[in-house]
């Protein structure tokens, strides 16, 4: 246990001593996560909608999403190296691929979970497919979709550590060079900043969700 507290203390000391560098790595890390996550949201939500609307599109979309998630994260990142080379762009593509599935499955589950009677009533009163989507399906599925976005984001922060292997920088740098140099304080400092980032993003997303729900006059009063 003495070893643990030493590592923790040394780690915090390292972080304080190198706060400038920490900030730089944090910004790199955050850019990787935000760009890939926004792209994943922009693709996964429409894909989920397509999968629900067109029965025939559903299986291939789900299958592709499942395969993307089953392939190890390191494999996705390493594969970008021969295809796109080194740096920020290949790392973002890899993280994007990896961030898709939780949002996709939650979009589908959220829309699928809507009660048949609600849809029946909406169709019966003459809503078109698009009106049904905008007025009924997306608002009701919103909390579930957003939960998927939160899960995906937290995982993304962890996966982005591996981006350093293909030269995209980020907090992986401290962790990896810490392991290489057997410097546990550096490893700990790198992990700590990432953990804080993950928690902060999760809380921020929770806040955004609450804001969006009350803006749209959603279910806040009933919850």
């Amino acid at each position: 246990m003495a070893g643990v507290s030493t590592t923790v203390l040394e780690g915090i000391r390292y972080l304080v001593a190198n706060s400038d560098q920490a900030l730089g790595l944090l910004v790199q890390h955050l850019k990787l996560v935000l760009v890939s996550e926004l792209a994943a949201i922009a693709i996964a939500v429409p894909l989920g909608v397509l999968a629900v609307r067109y029965e025939r599109a559903r299986e291939p979309i789900m299958a592709a999403g499942n395969v993307a998630q089953t392939i190890p994260s390191l494999a996705v990142i390493a594969l970008m190296f021969p295809i796109l080379g080194l740096g920020f762009r290949p790392a973002v593509v890899a993280l994007f691929v990896y961030a898709l599935l939780p949002i996709l499955t939650n979009t589908i589950a959220g829309i699928d979970g809507i009660e048949q009677s609600t849809l029946d009533a909406a169709r019966g009163m003459g809503m078109t497919d698009n009106e049904l989507l905008v007025r009924i399906q997306l608002p009701i599925a919103f909390p579930v979709i957003f939960a998927g976005i939160r899960t995906s984001t937290v995982i993304n922060v962890g996966t982005a550590y591996l981006a350093f292997f293909i030269g995209a920088g980020g907090l992986g740098r401290w962790v990896i060079s810490g392991i290489d140099l057997f410097d546990m304080s550096q490893v700990f400092a790198g992990a700590l900043v990432g953990a804080v980032l993950a928690i902060t993003l999760d809380l921020a997303l929770a806040g955004i969700e609450r804001q969006l729900r009350s803006d749209s006059g959603g279910q806040t009063a009933a919850v």
Binding site: T118, A121, G124, G126
Partner: peptide
């Protein structure tokens, strides 16, 4: 047109199918 048709026909079902994310007025 089925959409036009349905908008001129009221529809009430046993499960009611109210939109829980909207107020009664909405």
């Amino acid at each position: 047109d089925e959409i036009e048709l349905r908008r001129n026909i009221g529809y009430v079902i046993q499960e009611i199918g109210l939109f829980d994310h909207m107020t009664v007025g909405e």
